[in-house]
Write a protein that binds this DNA or RNA. Structure first.
Lengths: 197, 197
DNA sequence: CAAACTAGCTAACAGCGTTAGCCCACCAGG
DNA sequence: CCTGGTGGGCTAACGCTGTTAGCTAGTTTG
């Protein structure tokens, strides 16, 4: 089911920020390649420079610090996740949306574990983010629950599940599909109003 | 309400591992002091040595690597959390236990943010943990839900909430008390069997 | 044509975890 | 009594990290 326009409660995608200079895009792409392919430990300024056949200090002509580079990757990740989750809503029937959102989120995160860890680990440098990005990326959770608190709770559940799964934190032998189902059921019941609030 | 003995579904506390040598205990205590007081960034081998008025390389007479030191702190944290959460169950009425568990968990984590981050960030070095510790520490979530999947889902929710709160990840102005309540309600309803599984 | 900007370079610094090798105090056994 | 082992410290140093200062060649712009 493809539904054009905005769903009830849906918010519009923010415009990407003042476009990045050519070289900045190339560097960010290389950084993402290293991060996703070789892990966070491999993403050093020297390794990144090598990937681009330049010297590490030259990177500082384009990024003021490693943290700024990482912020760019985080921003990209948030746009990615927002795109993927909003699309999931548009492509599923109303009563399938919660399950679809969870499934989509989990799938994306497992496909990009290092990027996801980078994006969610530690404090967020909010002021440097494009205006509206955070709200838009989090919006699907609201669309699916119809309530701000429940949306945050559901997202927290999903993030907890994902990060613990990526870090292999569940006891060996856990049936995570079933755990996701259990959580989806709990939130689904409340979201559908089976239990008064 | 103090209830001695084991609750239904409750598991016994594992014995602490072969006791640590005197000096090891002192070093771990100093490390915890630095971590909790000054943050993860301050916990370096040199800073830790300084705290003990020795030189950094001397630490390697007691810990094979920084990771081993951290493992000791993580082990302590898991015992702490297990103690605190098990106690919460024993001190509350059956139908208050889920809410009490969540409240207790949140309170502990906010009181020890850096320790909690250390303990939950990244992969767990399972083989070096005392046998049964992981299961015992996670047991309250099972006691409270009566179901393994629901227990994992509830714990994932709690972890997600805590870590996002500690890292200041919720949009400014969020009412987190209410978010916790929303999640507790969702899981409480399912755990009480309002919705068939 | 000169000035300014872009984007690279080398050399270097401080801080990180960690290793090698030395040394002294203590304590048990012959 | 002395001798060997062990526990627990030391200094020097290595390779890695992010980052800075200062130089330079090429391109663009007034």
């Amino acid at each position: 089911m493809r539904v054009p326009g905005l769903l009830p409660g849906e918010v519009a995608r923010p415009s990407a920020p003042p476009e990045r200079p050519r070289r900045v895009v190339e560097i960010a792409a290389a950084a993402r390649r290293i991060l996703e392919g070789e892990g966070a430990g491999a993403l050093t300024m020297r390794r990144l420079a090598e990937e681009l056949s330049i010297q590490a200090p030259s990177l500082y002509k384009h990024f003021s610090a490693k943290a700024a580079l990482e912020s760019a990757l985080i921003e990209d990740a948030m746009f990615d996740i927002g795109d993927v989750t909003h699309r999931a809503l548009h492509e599923s029937e109303p009563d399938e949306r919660l399950a679809s959102l969870l499934r989509t989120y989990r799938t994306y995160c497992r496909a990009h574990p290092n990027l996801y860890r980078l994006a969610t680990n530690g404090a967020l440098l909010r002021p440097s983010l494009p205006a509206g990005l955070e709200e838009w990326a989090g919006n699907p959770w609201f669309v699916v629950t119809g309530d701000a608190s429940l949306a945050q709770a559901l997202w927290s559940f999903a993030h907890g599940m994902v990060i613990l799964e990526l870090d292999d934190r569940y006891p060996p032998g856990s049936d995570l599909d079933q755990t996701w189902r259990a959580g989806a059921e709990a939130f689904g019941a409340v979201a559908r109003g089976y239990v008064g609030r």
